[in-house]
Amino acid sequence: MDEPLLRVAHLSKSYGPRVGCADVSFDLWPGEVLAVVGESGSGKTTMLNAVSTRLEPTAGTVSYRMRDGAWRDVFAMSEAERRFLMRTDWGFVHQNPADGLRMSVSAGANVGERLMAVGDRHYGNIRASAIDWLGRVEIAEDRIDDQPRAFSGGMRQRLQIARNLVTRPRLIFMDEPTGGLDVSVQARLLDLLRGLVSDMGLAAIVVTHDLAVARLLSHRMMVMKDGRVIEHGLTDRVLDDPRAPYTQLLVSSILQV
């Protein structure tokens, strides 16, 4: 147990001469939520995509401790292994639910897809799991056969979360999970996410530009600017006592209600 789940070392991604992210290193432990903050263009999404193998990094390594305890370099895995990992032990929650959902298949099938992908061939069981997960993300059972197009933004986002969690992953990546939602919906989603993360002991990397979201969800925080990590520490330490001038600027820019 007392070993990290994910190790990122000197990860860099450049687009030609342009730096996406540079020399990012961190460990992530089971059950830990790491927030990555920074303004648009700071490289946080590039970093997230590189760590989650959605982008090939230019340099650096990402190691993951598999369920059997063995450490694997995720970029040295075969594509089949990597994709299997991504749809079983990992999850990815996109900012725009349409990117993470199949908009033209029913909510139930969206949740059940991962189960079918790992070989579940019993309709009744798949449907029961889908109903269970819809319930956990506060979607009424009678919406199970509706397509996500008929859902509101908040419901779509919750559906996307259920779809990712149905295989009980150990690590989940989230890119601005509450972006684009109005505040009451956002609050509900944050509440839900917090509960799921603690109930399931999920480790998570949450990219957000919203410092309030980072404070509520995360244990640790990384501040990025121009592709580099400029500050890293306990979330409330970074927010209450920011060290880097840029973080101080960021914290002082929060709107107060």
Binding site: R102, V105, A109, E113, L115, M116, Y123
Partner: peptide, 29 residues
């Protein structure tokens, strides 16, 4: 189910056929 040829070829190559059952699931639902 998946309009991108690049993606369907990859799915065949990696034997990722969960989506096929999604279609059948939808039928039953």
């Amino acid at each position: 189910l998946e309009p991108r040829e690049t993606e369907t070829r990859k799915m065949h190559a990696l034997e990722e056929y969960g989506l096929m059952h999604v279609k059948l699931y939808e039928d039953i639902a």
